[in-house]
Amino acid sequence: MKLRVEVVAIDCLMVRLFDAIDEANMPWMLAASQRLRAVFGERLIDLVPSYTTLMLQFDMLLCSPLEARDLINNALRDLQPDTCAGGRRLEIPVWYDASVGPELSVLAARCGVSEDEIIRRHSGREYQVFALGFAPGFAFMGLVEESLASPRLATPRKRVAAGSVGIAERQTAAYPALSPGGWNLIGRTPAPLFDRQRDGYSLLQPGDRVRFVAIAHAEFLALGGDDTPLEEQP
């Protein structure tokens, strides 16, 4: 870990702990987040974890930028990961089908395997939730195996249905709501990923570990899934 503090705004600092994305970073990120929340207390406005950084916004009426830097350095001095800490383990059901995941067949053709094999590979490992971003409840997870890694679409879609599960590079995610998007879609989940009535709003939080579980069309519908095919877009 190489601690660096960078200025984002007059009341916002970026705490950089690592330079490269790695699943091994997460225990350190969680430990740093806990310490910073404890040390800043009511002076903290927001703390946003990402793959390698923590963006920290503080109340300037209670804390100057210099004091904020001192608090960060003191909080993270001699930081050690808590090997017992970690998020929840969750299973997310997915109906993998080309009608809602048009890149499923594209990935199969590129890899020279069947669509069933792509499904087996995607659902065959546990993914770490690294960060939330892009849209409320959108969880960046990884890492998918290298054979499935795919660049974002050259032209993003204007409308991606809620629940759409996709891959971008070695990340995977599910769209919590209808939105534009350029990820390679391979299926759809009926799970409500964002709910204003839920504590914390988002189903997934950084540090959680997720396994996608393939389900049949009938179960997808029974769980409240919308099987409207993805619209063809110019």
Score class of each variant (00 low, 15 high):
Y51A: 07
D208T: 06
R16T: 09
F40C: 09
V100H: 05
R16S: 14
W28H: 13
V5N: 03
A161W: 14
E91L: 09
L66H: 12
P93F: 01
Q57R: 14
Y51F: 15
R209L: 07
R89A: 06
I215G: 01
P151D: 04
V39I: 11
G207S: 11
Q80F: 01
F194E: 00
L230S: 12
E23Y: 00
A162K: 07
P156E: 02
L148H: 05
T172P: 03
C111T: 06
I119F: 05
P27K: 01
C12Q: 15
A174I: 09
G166A: 05
L54R: 08
R110H: 07
R211D: 00
I10W: 13
L30R: 11
L178N: 12
R37M: 08
K158E: 10
N74K: 10
F138N: 11
L61R: 13
M1V: 13
E232C: 08
P206R: 06
Q57N: 01
F194Y: 04
D208C: 02
V144T: 15
R211M: 00
L3G: 07
L66M: 08
S179W: 06
M26R: 13
G112V: 04
F212Y: 15
R159H: 11
D22Q: 04
R69I: 13
K2A: 06
D70V: 07
A98V: 14
R110N: 06
R211E: 00
R16A: 12
F212W: 15
R121L: 15
A131Y: 02
Q128C: 04
R121G: 00
P229Y: 14
P136C: 00
G166D: 01
G133R: 04
D226R: 02
F140P: 08
M60E: 15
W183E: 15
E67D: 11
P81T: 00
C111R: 14
E146S: 15
Q197V: 10
A85V: 02
V39G: 00
I186V: 14
M60R: 14
A68P: 07
G182V: 02
F40P: 13
D97A: 14
A32V: 07
A135Y: 10
L221N: 02
D116W: 03
A214L: 02
A108M: 02
C84N: 09
A109F: 04
L221Q: 10
T228L: 07
R170A: 15
D195H: 04
G101M: 05
G207M: 10
Q128F: 10
V129M: 06
R159Y: 02
F220H: 08
R35W: 02
V213K: 14
R88A: 13
F194I: 08
A9Q: 01
L132M: 07
S123E: 01
C84S: 13
F40Y: 09
F212Q: 02
L56G: 08
G87F: 08
T172M: 05
L13D: 08
N25Q: 08
R16M: 02
Y96A: 10
T52Q: 05
G224D: 02
V213I: 14
D78I: 00
S164I: 06
S50M: 09
L132S: 10
E23F: 00
P234Y: 09
T172E: 02
R188V: 03
R209N: 02
V15S: 11
G207H: 12
R37S: 05
G207K: 06
G101N: 04
L56Q: 12
A68M: 12
S164Q: 04
V213H: 01
E42K: 07
F134H: 01
E115T: 15
S99L: 13
